[in-house]
Amino acid sequence: MTRVTQLSRQHALLAHLRGASGRLFDAQVLAASGQQVGRPSDDPSAAGLLVRLRAEMSSRNAEVERLTLADLQMSATDAALDAATQVLTRIQEIAVQMATETLPPEDLQAAAEEVQALHDELVRIGNTEYGGRYLFAGQTYDQPAFQAEGTYVGSTSGVDLHLGDGGVVEVGTPGDGIFRGAGGGTDLFATAQDLIAALQAGDSDGVQATLDAVQEGLDQVIAARVSLGTRQDFVQSQAARSQDQADLLDADVRALSEADLTAAYTELADAQAAYEAVLQISSQALSVSVFDFLR
């Protein structure tokens, strides 16, 4: 039989106290922080995984932010192109009316002045600013895209949004293609100038001759809107996808790192009770002595 000595009692009680108070401390930290993996040693592989997941989540969230801003910019571009469509439609109405009817010179002059105003409006639309950016100036969006008479002074390179997976989507299309027909399209400004010249000269054949070009210009702007819309759809769905991924990652991170609070509080109560029991037993055990019972 093992002898029980003073020191056996003391050391054993001390070890139990140490164990119970260590367990209580761990339970307190777990319940207070709500974190299952606080320090890397709590679960080394989960800690490594958490670093990856959090980095991925943060990059997704940043991507959502960029995509949302791009979406707003594209909406503004769409609104500008819508305005351009309306201007062109009005030019078309004037051109059709002037080509089919015979009107006095003062009406022609008035029509020419309206087309000039519409031309200037079109240039203003080409120089639409959103959030400090000239939307149709390409990469040099800190400067206007067009000079007053319609010369394109922007960059020929579009503004790209870089996605996290290395993909690229164009959010800022240079205006020289849309408004000036660069690369084989219709020059809206030149067409307007032609119409003005024909109107001023009272040349109804000349006015007639611009009708096709006006229609082509209208088609060109509509095509740009369609292309923009397609890209905007992509940006929106990409934003939604990234947001979904960020949410999933967030759920994963929570599942890995957060403590099950019910279990944590149960363990805390258990550990508290165990600690109190050990304290109680210690104080009782150490106060009993054989000498209390002798004589």
Partner: peptide, 24 residues
């Protein structure tokens, strides 16, 4: 420590994210 805002892991991804934002 996991989830620390000032730890190296958070600052490393913050660095890449900041340049991704800058690119836009």
């Amino acid at each position: 420590e996991d989830g620390s805002e000032t730890g190296l892991p958070a600052l490393l991804s913050g660095f890449f994210d900041a340049f991704a934002s800058l690119s836009s």
